[in-house]
Every structure is written in structure tokens, then in C-alpha cells.
Design a binder for these strands. Structure first.
Length: 768
DNA sequence: AACTGTGGCCGTGGGT
DNA sequence: ACCCACGGCCAC
């Protein structure tokens, strides 16, 4: 089973360390949906690299680990008290000996993680995601008049509603006007304990609801007994980065706290499907909203409360149901990672992927009582990455895409690349098992009905495996992990570059034209379009090293290549945009529209329509006949006003949008990670979007339009480009004669620099 | 305290 | 007018 673990701890939903009794408590959800509790005694340990760091005394046992790696002295402690004092001692010796680098000479995790590591168990074995008992929690606060946000320190800002929804179909709505605020808080605790939930989830739970609840409970002097052993909600003040802000970490004994907001943000980093991360917008965008709901501004809540509007109750209930839906959508990958790793569910959500790969290697070593490498010892200098090149700019037709399946993991396995410290060959062994598991999951996907529950779960499993597998490469180049090795990392990328170049060579030898390459994939055209997908992938894969598999990854009708990592694809009249130039969040509506229209006209060969569109847009800008969305952009607030003003003094770095809000009385409206929407008004001034009065600066937006048109530099000859994208009238007849190069293939004669000179009006060029 | 990586384009704001 | 460093956002 290695590196996975035996199922000794079947259906365990939580393991905690009870500090008072110094015992590990295990909660198991049996097949009757009842929780069984077991206490287990276990010793505590950490590992150091020299006897100098080991404490003296009879309550400690120093075990020398096998093998030649430097972290070799395991300090085993009889009790938690002994462990804490031993650790303190070791750290103080360590600081004296190594200074700042002290922590690189130790290995230490929390008691529960160390316990999972040593016992070789994980949570959630033989459970499915839906078997966990989950409650979504949402509070509505009363905001006193004139304020934008509730402040828990303000006695007027009380909790007025608590809404709970669980995944067994129960909902609860607690009303302050009936229960009183203290009664409401107590009832929340009672319900959580009575129903004995494994997971407490919510949207921005850690950033808002829990801090708020804690403060209100303190003021009302109510203990928040949410733990399975009736212990109170604990808060660790230090803080992990929560989005951009620092938030405390919360713990409930025996339960996991899962906040859907950070999960949603990380999900969207790759998917780019969301406009914002508000709960109701997200569930609608994802198509998982449990039911239709009336929509209104959060600012109205207090007003509705004052007027006792019944809608508010619906609203609050819907929030909890939405949170639960979002949790169900986002959490399965996390669930399956928890099945594989010596981490709790909650820790799994907060831990980076590199650490997870590292931990799985450390577990393999400790299971053989083998010594460990020092932390970050083999990372130096800058790493080398993937190969990227836009080999042929402009329009192309009938494009193929091929890529290597799991390039870096395949290279690791094929060329036996691993960290030099990995004497037990755990890196390839773990990687191999994970890869095989993923292939199994992917294979069984094909046999499952795509709408069913099992399909979703299996898909989540293979996806979480993919993330873990990929992080084995990323781990190597990271300082601060135990099995990192930048030399191995560079070996992998070098091989990757060689493989990509060989693929390019294969296409060119078949008289194909390579358009764009990036890391593990290649876009190209071939002389004949009749080849099958299989034949094409074989062609690309010729003479590649064994173990490297090339997949045919699609056919596109058109492709426009502008720059490395920046291109457009058209398939069945569907436009796919890649790169910051064509799909940045920061694009103005004006630019988005231009890109879409431009491609559409080009595909239809409608040069006259394109010229007309450009002139019309320019005319509207001059006349200030613009839509709000066309001219608005934003800046994400990434520092507090105080930090900004501090920065102004020390570095003098100005930001016009921040200047704009700095002097406003309502400047607290913009919090960290919120956006300042603004537009360009006359004389180089910017103004807030909320003050929009169509008083835009035409020169700014004309320049913007021109710059956007420049992204389509390679569509016409330079002279024609200048005639199409110009405000100078051009008759339809003349425009019709201008054909995109794509329809009239010519030699690509110009360099980017030559184009630019032409566009800037230098007609002295002897290009043609 | 905790942390997966590199490659790339572009706008901004400061400097000369 | 040009250069440059930096941060934001994106591809893989």
C-alpha cells in the first residue's frame, strides 16, 4: 500500500490532541452515521541534526535514525509537557549554534500531524465526501446608520440572524428579535453540538463571521463551546495570509473549519470564470445556486431589519444554502488529498502543494525510521524553466495542437530524476503510485455516467492527484522544503526543452509550420489536412525518449499569433483568447469589444466593416458617446490607507487611484482586496466610476483604441494596417480591396521593429 | 509562519 | 523622449 497507508483507522473524521489529558482523540463516523470516540496514547517527537540540540534528561529518549542523512536524531518524549520543554531547549541550543538558519536543522510538525506521520494513518479512509456531516454557517449583522460595514466592537452592531444549513437537509434560522443575541449565539453552539457536525463551512467565515462572532460572544460573556469535547473555539493569533489580509487561524476541537472564499479564489486562479468572489455571484456563475433568490444589496439589510421585512429571512437562509452548495463544489479535491496525506482536512486547505509532496516523502522515510535531509540545503541560484517561443506571427488556418502528457512527471520517471538526497528512491516510487492511481481514476471515469455522483467524486480524485503529482516538480526548486534540489529541477526542465525542440523538428521535417510553442505543447500547421489525429501525434512523437507520450490536443480553424503566450484561436466560430494581451481582467470593455469584432470581421473577410467599426468607435469616443463598461477599469487595493501614506513618505511611490480615494470621507469603503473602479477624465485626471458622467478624456481612449488595434499588427501589410485603423475616411470600395494576409498568404517580411516604424508614420521604409 | 516553479507582456510611475 | 524597475496578470 505504501506510500498510502493501511486502513487501520477506518472512517476517521477527526483526530485531535487533547492537551490536558495528553491523549489523541479519534472520532470515527460509523456506517450508522454515529460518531464513535476513542482515545489513544502516543509519544511526541521531533528530529534534529546533532546531539548538541538534544535535551538532557530521563524523560527523553534520543533515537538515532538509520542512513547517512543529516537529520538523524529523533527526540522521543513521554509527555506533551516534556515535548514542549524539549523543543524549547532544542530551539535555544539551535539558535546559539545556527542562528537564523536554526529551523533548517530541525524537523517538527504539530502533534496531530506527527501522530498521523508516525502511525501511518490518514483521515477519511473508506469515506466519501458526502458522508462527512457538514454545516454551513452564515450570520447577518446589523449596521448602524451611516456605516458601510458592521464593526463587532460597536455595541449597536449586533448579530441579528444566524442561518445554518447542513448536508443532511436540515436548515435553521435563528432570529435575534426572538432569542436575543446571547440566546442566538448559545443556540448556534447547541445546534452544532447536537447535530455533531464534522465540518463547519461558510463564505469568508475565517475573515468575517468567526472574528465577529468571537468578539460579540466575548462582549456578552458567552463561551463558544463548539468543540466535540465541549471546548471553546480557539484562535491562534498569528496568522496565515488569508487572501491579502492576515487573519487568525480558528480551531474547533474535533471539527474542521473550511472557508469557501480562499478555496474559491484558488479555484478561479486557473479557471478564470468569475467576475468577483461574492457568494451569490459565484453560485450563479458556477450554475450551482440551490434555488432562485431575490437579489438585493447588502447595505439594505439593516434597513430591512428595521422594517421587519420578511425577505431578509429568505435571504439569510439562502446564504447558508449557497455556502453549502459552494462547499460541495469546491471541497472534494481537498477531501481526497486528506485521504492521502498526514494532514487534517483543515490543514490540507491551508497547506501549499509543495509542502504536501515533501510531506509524502518524509512520511516514506520515517516509516522506515530513516534519517532526513536538511531543509533547503540543495537550492541555489535561479532555476531554468520551460521553452517558449512564438515562431510564426500572424494569421494561420487549419491548426493542430499536440502536447506531452504530464511532461515533468514523465521526465522524472523516464530519466530517473530525483532529489540527490533521496537514497530510498521514494520520489520515483511515490510519483509512480500517484500516477498509476490517477490513470486508474481517469480510466474508470470513462465507464461512469457523467451526471452521477460517482463521476464527480472520481473526477475530483484524479484532479487532486494531478495537483499533487505536478507539485513534485515544483517542490524541487523550492527552498524551505526538505527534499528540494534545484539541480534535479533544472535537469527536468532541460530535458523538457530538448523534448519540445525535438517535437518542433519533427513537424518541420514533415514540412509543417510551427506557430507557437510553450513548455510542453506545440501549435502547428501541416501541408495536408487529411491526416488523422493519431497519425499527427505519431508524427510529432517520432524519436522521443521512451515514456514520453504525445497527445493530439485539438484542431482549430484559425489562429492569430501575436507574441509568446499571447494568441487567439477560433474553433467552430468560438473565440478562445490566450494571454494577458487578449484576456486580462484589466482590459477595458472597449478593448474586449474591439478584439471580438475584429476577429469576427477578419474571419468573414470584411475589411470594410472593420475599417468602419474602427472609425465609428473613434468617432464615438470623440463625441463621448460611450457606455460605462467600455471606459472603466480598476485597481485592486493591496495596502491599507495608512500603509500607502507611509509608503509615500518613505519611497514616494504614488498611485493615482489611491490618491483619488485618500482624501474622501468614505475612504474606508475600500478595504484590502476591494477594487477602485475609475476612468480617465480630461487633462490626465482620473475619476471614480461612481462619479461617471461621460466626461471621458477622448485622447486617452483614442490612444487605447489605437494600441488595441496594434495587437492586430500582423493582419495586413503595414501600409494597409495604417489605412484600415485610421480615422481618415476610407471608401468601402477601397477597404474591400484590402485583404487580410490570411486570405492572401504572403511572405512574412517585416520584423516587429519595422512594423512599428511604419505605424508611427515612417513611410520611408523600403519594405516592399 | 509558511512557502510548488519559470517565462512573458504591458502599463505605471519614477528617473534622466 | 527614452529608459528602467516593478507589479499585475497570464500561460504552462
Amino acid at each position: 500500500m505504501w506510500p498510502f497507508t493501511e486502513n487501520r483507522f477506518d472512517r476517521v473524521v477527526a483526530i485531535e490532541h487533547d492537551e490536558q489529558r495528553d491523549q489523541f482523540v479519534q472520532y470515527k463516523r460509523n456506517s450508522q452515521d454515529i460518531i464513535e470516540e476513542t482515545s489513544i496514547s502516543s509519544k511526541h517527537f521531533f528530529i534534529v541534526d546533532t546531539l548538541d540540540l538534544c535535551p538532557l534528561g530521563s524523560s527523553y529518549l534520543v533515537v538515532e535514525l538509520v542512513g547517512e542523512l543529516p537529520l538523524r536524531y529523533l527526540v522521543l518524549c513521554d509527555s506533551y509537557r516534556d515535548y514542549l520543554s524539549a523543543l524549547r531547549e532544542a530551539k535555544s541550543y539551535g539558535r546559539a549554534k545556527y542562528g537564523e538558519a536554526m529551523s533548517d536543522h530541525m524537523w517538527q510538525r504539530s502533534p496531530v500531524e506527527a501522530f498521523l506521520m508516525r502511525s501511518g494513518t490518514t483521515l477519511f479512509t473508506n469515506l466519501q465526501p458526502h458522508e462527512l456531516k457538514v454545516v454551513a454557517l452564515d450570520f447577518e449583522m446589523y449596521t448602524s446608520a451611516g456605516k458601510h460595514f458592521a464593526a463587532s466592537s460597536d455595541p449597536m452592531d449586533k448579530i441579528i440572524l444566524a442561518s445554518l444549513a447542513d448536508n443532511r437537509g436540515q436548515t435553521y434560522l435563528l432570529d435575534e428579535s426572538l432569542l436575543g443575541e446571547a440566546g442566538l449565539i448559545k443556540e448556534v453552539c447547541r445546534l452544532i453540538n447536537q447535530n455533531d457536525y464534522d465540518v463547519i463551512c461558510g463564505h469568508n467565515l475565517v475573515g468575517f463571521d468567526l472574528p465577529y462572532l468571537t468578539t460579540r460572544a466575548q462582549q456578552l460573556n458567552i463561551p463558544l463551546c463548539l468543540g466535540r469535547n465541549r471546548s471553546v473555539l480557539k484562535q491562534r493569533a498569528i496568522t496565515r495570509r488569508y487572501g491579502l489580509r492576515e487573519a487568525p487561524e480558528f480551531f474547533v476541537f474535533g471539527r474542521h473549519i473550511i472557508d469557501t472564499l480562499p478555496l474559491l479564489i484558488s479555484w478561479d486562479i486557473t479557471k478564470r470564470a468569475l467576475e468577483n468572489y461574492r457568494l451569490k455571484d459565484a453560485v450563479i456563475a458556477l450554475g450551482i445556486s440551490p434555488r432562485d433568490r431575490r437579489d438585493f444589496d447588502r447595505g439594505d439589510i439593516s434597513q430591512m431589519w428595521d422594517s421587519k421585512a420578511a425577505d431578509l429571512l429568505d435571504y439569510a437562509q439562502a446564504d447558508a444554502l449557497d455556502s453549502l452548495a459552494l462547499y460541495s463544489f469546491l471541497s472534494p479535491a481537498l477531501f481526497f488529498q486528506t485521504q492521502m496525506l498526514p494532514l487534517t482536512y483543515q490543514q490540507c486547505a491551508a497547506t501549499g502543494t509543495g509542502t504536501k509532496a515533501d510531506l509524502s516523502l518524509i512520511r516514506a522515510y520515517l516509516q522506515k525510521t530513516h534519517s532526513l535531509p536538511l531543509r533547503g540545503a540543495h537550492v541555489l541560484g535561479e532555476g531554468r524553466g520551460g521553452l517558449t517561443e512564438a515562431k510564426s506571427l500572424g494569421w494561420h488556418q487549419d491548426i493542430h495542437k499536440a502536447d506531452v502528457a504530464s511532461l515533468y512527471p514523465s521526465i522524472c520517471l523516464s530519466f530517473n530524476i530525483k532529489p540527490r538526497t533521496d537514497v530510498l528512491n521514494a520520489f520515483p516510487a511515490v510519483l509512480k503510485v500517484l500516477t498509476e492511481r490517477r490513470l486508474e481514476a481517469k480510466a474508470s471515469l470513462k465507464t461512469l455516467p457523467p451526471d452521477g455522483y460517482e463521476f464527480k467524486a472520481t473526477d475530483a480524485l484524479q484532479n487532486s492527484l494531478k495537483i499533487l503529482i505536478n507539485s513534485f516538480y515544483g517542490m524541487l526548486g523550492t527552498s524551505g522544503l526538505y527534499f528540494s534540489d534545484s539541480e534535479a529541477s533544472n535537469d527536468i526542465t532541460t530535458r523538457g526543452q530538448e523534448i519540445l525542440l525535438k517535437m518542433v523538428d519533427n513537424v518541420e521535417r514533415a514540412h509543417g509550420k510551427v506557430i507557437e510553442i510553450d513548455t510542453d505543447g506545440i501549435y502547428f500547421t501541416l501541408p495536408e489536412s487529411t491526416k488523422t489525429a493519431h497519425a499527427i501525434s505519431c508524427l510529432v512523437a517520432e524519436e522521443l525518449p521512451p515514456g514520453i507520450r504525445v497527445d493530439y490536443d485539438g484542431h482549430y480553424d484559425y489562429m492569430y499569433s501575436y507574441a509568446p503566450k499571447n494568441y487567439l484561436l477560433v474553433k467552430n466560430d468560438l473565440l478562445i483568447r490566450k494571454g494577458v494581451v487578449f484576456r486580462s481582467r484589466r482590459l477595458f470593455g472597449l478593448q474586449n469589444d474591439f478584439i471580438v469584432v475584429c476577429v469576427d470581421k477578419l474571419i468573414r473577410g470584411d475589411s470594410a466593416g472593420l475599417a468602419a467599426y474602427y472609425r465609428q468607435t473613434a468617432r464615438r469616443i470623440r463625441a463621448r458617446e460611450v457606455e460605462f463598461d467600455s471606459v472603466i477599469t480598476y485597481l485592486v487595493v493591496d495596502q491599507t490607507m495608512a500603509e500607502y501614506e507611509e509608503g509615500l513618505m518613505t519611497q514616494g511611490q504614488r498611485s493615482r487611484p489611491l490618491d483619488l480615494i485618500a482624501s474622501r470621507p468614505d475612504r474606508d469603503k475600500w478595504t484590502l482586496r476591494s477594487k477602485i473602479y475609475y476612468y480617465h477624465a480630461g487633462n490626465g485626471e482620473i475619476k471614480l466610476a461612481e462619479d461617471f458622467a461621460k466626461d471621458i478624456d477622448p485622447s486617452y481612449y483614442l490612444e487605447l483604441l489605437r494600441k488595441t488595434a496594434e495587437k492586430f499588427l500582423y493582419i495586413f501589410s503595414p501600409q494597409d494596417w495604417y489605412r484600415i485603423f485610421s480615422e481618415t475616411p476610407l471608401s468601402d470600395e477601397e477597404a474591400r480591396l484590402i485583404r487580410p494576409w490570411f486570405f492572401v498568404p504572403r511572405q512574412m517580411p517585416a520584423t516587429l521593429a519595422e512594423y512599428e516604424r511604419v505605424i508611427k508614420g515612417d513611410f520611408q521604409l523600403r519594405l516592399f
